[in-house]
Amino acid sequence: MTTQKPESGDSRSDEVIAGEYVLGVLSAEDRRQVEARMATDRNFAAMVVRWQSNLASIDLAYEPVAPPPHVFAAIESRVFESPASTGRSASLWNSLSFWRSLAFASLAAVAVLGISMLELFSAGQGGKPLVAELQGQGNGLGLALVAQFDTGSGRLRVTPVAARQTEEKSLELWLIKGSDPAISLGVLPQSGEGEILVRPAVRSKITEGSTLAVSLEPLGGSPTGSATGPVIALGTTRR
């Protein structure tokens, strides 16, 4: 601020800047500066979020206006006609070595790795299992999972590489096929690792290119049958 020359890091000045940002009075350059700081300074970002929620009741002043129909058509063509951004290009072999390097951190994880690799190789005779790496979506929840689906036995194994989920929540696994509503594959055990026996009716739907996603749900899984919490990991299956 020009008038008060506060010391840097002064939380009163920070509050003012965060508030000015949410009010919208700042210049484009100042807005980018604030957003850059939000990305690196959690406390400052929290101030912005708080102003947003504090001032949100003024939103009542906005009268709804129906947009013309062609706007949604334009949005749909922009969103759905762009190539899927969820596919990941890293090879399975790369993902396993990445996984193994992380697994050394814990003996238990090494054991899990051993079992998984054994299954992976033995499955080679009856057809390779489908594998998907599921990565967090940059929401700070920090979770990466490796999912393997054995087509023959219908066993879907999900192993977390790193999980920091809150205890009173459940992780629910979903199958996404194109634009169909997501199908719940089941709730992961609270230990954060384990297998789900996929319902026979759904097994044939897990094919190469299917998307698997994990959402954070109330304990025991989504009460509605569709995901209610944030998606914390997403990945595409491949051979």
């Binding site: 979903w174 634009s179 509503p181 996603a213 959402s215 569709s226 995901a227 944030p230 998606v231």
Partner: peptide, 10 residues
């Protein structure tokens, strides 16, 4: 939540 799972109807 459903939009996050790429549900177009949602």
């Amino acid at each position: 939540g459903r939009v996050a799972l790429a549900d177009r109807d949602a």
